[in-house]
Each structure stands twice: as C-alpha cells, then as structure tokens.
C-alpha cells in the first residue's frame, strides 16, 4: 500500500497514545452530559480528570469503557478506532476499569474474584466438561495479581467480609487481572479513610509504569501526587487541561472549581 499516503491520518494522533478521545459528546435526551471532550494518555502516564459533581466525569468514564455509546466523537485505543464498541469488546481490547461504587463478586473469595477476571484472557471459558483444576494458568495468574497488590493474606477470604478499603483494592485487582493496556479508574479513593488512601496512592505509584491511566478523583492530594496531566471539567466541557502545576494556577479553574481550597 505504498502508493497510499496515510501520514495525514497519523498527524493528529499523538505518538504512543494508548487511548485517545476526540470530540466526545454524550447527550441524554436534551441534556448534554459530555460535550466535545478530547484527551489522550500514553503508557506510564496518569491523566487525571477532576471537576465538580455533575461535571460529566463518570459519563466520560462510561464512554471510554464502552458502557455508554457516544453521541458524537471518536475513541481510539492503541491506534484502533473503537467508537461504539461495548464494554465486553473494550475489555478484550485492553481497556480495564474500576468503578466508583465497588463492583466485585461479594459472595466469592478474593482468589475466585481474580480467577474470573484472569480466565477472560485465556481461551477456555466455553469448556464445560473439564475441571478448573485442569487449567492451573488461571490461578497462577490470579496469584501474581494478588501478590502485586500485596493482598496475599486475603486470598481465601470472601470479598464481602473485607473492609471497604480492601474491597476497593479488589476492585483494582479485577481490572489488573485482565492484563489491560489502559486503566480507567473511577474514584479509586471513594469512601476511604486517610490511611487507606495513602496505601492506595502508594499502590497506584507502584503499578503506574505499565499502563496508561485515566483517573477520576475528588481527593486533591491524590490527584496532585499522581497526575502527569490534569483536565478540569465543568458542565460537560473541558475548561483546562495541562500540567498540574499550570492548572493549579489557572484563574479560570480556581474560579470554577478549586476555589480557595487549593490555597488553604
């Protein structure tokens, strides 16, 4: 295909961007929840999205993870146009996500939680006559994830018996266990105490180098500790997107969202 010059297609695709949104818009019968949002993230980077309640952050996450279909705009994952793909396909393409409201398997053990996630990457789930014991790869994969998150001591505990902070970590573990390229983290610190938050931030610091991370979070300490790029949303639109230090001093952002809290 030498005769066809495709370079114009690559011009606006940032080099190495694992996930990119272009002009994403989502309308819910009249209400525009997300309006012309463009952002991108590459491996090893954390792109944080902040904004007041109702700014459209969760909708944006649901668009990026395929749980909602954008009204307009494009989503590109690792060079592939995935606009309109559902959450199942997105997951298989390497987009893992965690949820704001813990979304795990409460009645199953931590190990079994991870097993379900790991098995989704191995081609055997339709096998219904052989025992799971015939496939040790699944459990060893789960154990690697559990070790990585230092949850070994909880392996055999039922997820519903864990503390909230621990459940939030299982939430991350499930996403990691699908071996994603892109991680969408929707308020990983939601409802956590100070110490649990610090643990979670440390955890994210440990694993960040392997993924392109898009992070929605209310905890400003966490955002400034983690983010390489900071996008501020308001009423569904991006009002600022830059390095955290630049955003912090932007008068527009201060007025719209951060107010005085950042100086305090």
């Amino acid at each position: 295909m030498d005769w066809l010059d495709l370079s114009f297609l690559k011009k606006d695709l940032k080099v190495g961007a694992l996930i990119e949104a272009r002009g994403l818009t989502k309308k819910f019968s009249g209400l525009t929840a997300v309006s012309k949002v463009s952002l991108s993230c590459e491996r090893g980077h954390i792109h944080a999205v902040i904004g007041p309640n109702g700014a459209g952050k969760s909708t944006l996450m649901n668009l990026l993870s395929g749980e909602l279909r954008p009204t307009e705009g494009k989503i590109v994952v690792d060079g592939v146009d995935v606009t309109g793909y559902g959450s199942t396909k997105m997951s298989l393409l390497g987009v893992g996500r965690s949820y704001q409201r813990t979304n795990i398997y409460p009645s199953l053990s931590v190990l079994e939680n991870c097993n379900i996630a790991v098995q989704s990457r191995l081609d055997m789930s339709m096998q219904f006559m052989r025992s799971v014991n015939a496939y040790p790869d699944v459990e060893s994969g789960s154990r690697r994830v559990i070790e990585r998150l230092q949850l070994d001591s909880l392996s055999y505990k039922k997820a519903s018996e864990l503390s909230h902070g621990e459940q939030r970590q299982i939430e991350i573990a499930l996403a990691l266990a699908t071996d994603p390229k892109v991680l969408l983290l929707d308020e990983p610190l939601a409802g956590m105490g100070a110490e649990e938050s610090l643990n979670m931030i440390a955890l994210l610091q440990r694993i960040r180098s392997d993924f392109a991370v898009i992070l929605v979070e209310h905890d400003m300490d966490a955002v400034f500790a983690l983010a390489d790029t900071l996008t501020v949303m308001q009423n569904g639109e991006i009002i600022e997107s830059d390095k955290p230090a630049v955003v912090r001093s932007s008068p527009r952002v201060q007025e719209a969202y951060l107010g005085t809290s950042i100086d305090a």
Binding site: Y105, E112, M124, S125, F128, M129, V132
Partner: peptide, 8 residues
C-alpha cells in the same frame, strides 16, 4: 468447569 466459573 471454566464455563461454570463464568456462570458463577
């Protein structure tokens, strides 16, 4: 089986 795991 692995299938049963997905059902669970």
């Amino acid at each position: 089986s692995p299938f049963g795991r997905v059902l669970a």
